[in-house]
Design a binder for these strands. Sequence first.
DNA 1: ACCCGTATAGTCGGATCCGGCTAATAGAGA
DNA 2: TCTCTATTAGCCGGATCCGACTATACGGGT
Lengths: 211, 211
Amino acid sequence: MAKRKISNTLALAVLGLLQEQPMHPYEMASTLRERHKDSSFKVNSGSLYDTVESLVRHGWIEPVETARDGRRPERTVYAVTGLGQDEFVRWIDELLRTPVAEYPKFMAAVSYLGALGPHGAAEALAERAEHLARRIEETGAVLADTVGSGGVPRLFMIEVECALHAWEAELAWTRRTIAEIREGSLAWPGAERTGQGWTWTDPTDEKGTTR
Amino acid sequence: MAKRKISNTLALAVLGLLQEQPMHPYEMASTLRERHKDSSFKVNSGSLYDTVESLVRHGWIEPVETARDGRRPERTVYAVTGLGQDEFVRWIDELLRTPVAEYPKFMAAVSYLGALGPHGAAEALAERAEHLARRIEETGAVLADTVGSGGVPRLFMIEVECALHAWEAELAWTRRTIAEIREGSLAWPGAERTGQGWTWTDPTDEKGTTR
DNA sequence: ACCCGTATAGTCGGATCCGGCTAATAGAGA
DNA sequence: TCTCTATTAGCCGGATCCGACTATACGGGT
């Protein structure tokens, strides 16, 4: 599959907002935050202006007016073009259809879980589990009093449900792994590379070397 | 929490490898690929050399020799320093303990699931589900014939189990959502923004609600 | 003997990203 | 009335990242 000319998903958010009505960048940022979309998109004002400019260059959006209130910096209002409208839908479709490799920080750390030793690893994972549990609870509450109260249709916050589900899975894995470490069912070899391949010490076997 | 001076996790991979023995960058890349660590770290040769240089600047690693075989480009071999060793452990600990916001492409797309309409959305999700299922199967197979055969201790590929778990959760959510769309239990309001707020058509209620 | 694909090893320029900055206004409080 | 902070709005320099490229060596086929 050919690479997309614009890959930053913040551009997708911009396109989404302009689908509703023309806006200036600052309003995009505040609207995204208001709607809790800042948990699915990294809303950074610096990147936002770059992104908008890039969308203009590609002809997906265009400036429609530049207004000025008093002596405040002038705001440029943008609207989506026909091309932008099409690309918006095509892009979403593509992102949904084809999973792409992502590299979450957590995976990186889990790769080297061994380095902390069984005790340290369980400790660290336990703290993460607490954070996750708290975050899940908080997000659940937000969801309950926006969608739950009927203020916003469920579809408009479906990504929050999705994220919640993902965190729950991560929490489950984390807790299970802590348990396995503590009960010893996850063997903790000391890693040593000797010439070709690996040598490690099986903890069930007494003469162990640790690095 | 103060921001880390180096945030690219590829640096963590480098540190991890140099924990075992000194190496030159090209060997790091091939070792990572050999051990399937390239699914947790984005191994890009360009980034790798930049990363190594940055680690040197920070004094976490240092060049120990520059060898040359025949007329091939010379290779610089690096080793981890004491500082680098400490930081390695501290960094892993921090990454495990505190979850940070990440912005997967999938979440971005799910945010605008509505734009595809119920039919298109279910279609797209269904294709994703197939891809995910295939990937899970393939990865499971790899895991089985590396760890399963006893060639490598389980701890050394624990991140693969973790990723597998995450994909399974994503697949479950995806399938459940497809089902909800198809059976109509996920209401599909037509989004229209009228002046302030939205108006949407609630399929159960005839006269739209406004927010 | 020659060609082609792959492995080895690394460089470089340009695109992207982001944090920190400016600057004006509105409103709260002393 | 005067200062202090928050909000509105956007800009910019430097750090980071990555794809595309160079160049040599090696092994196998024809």
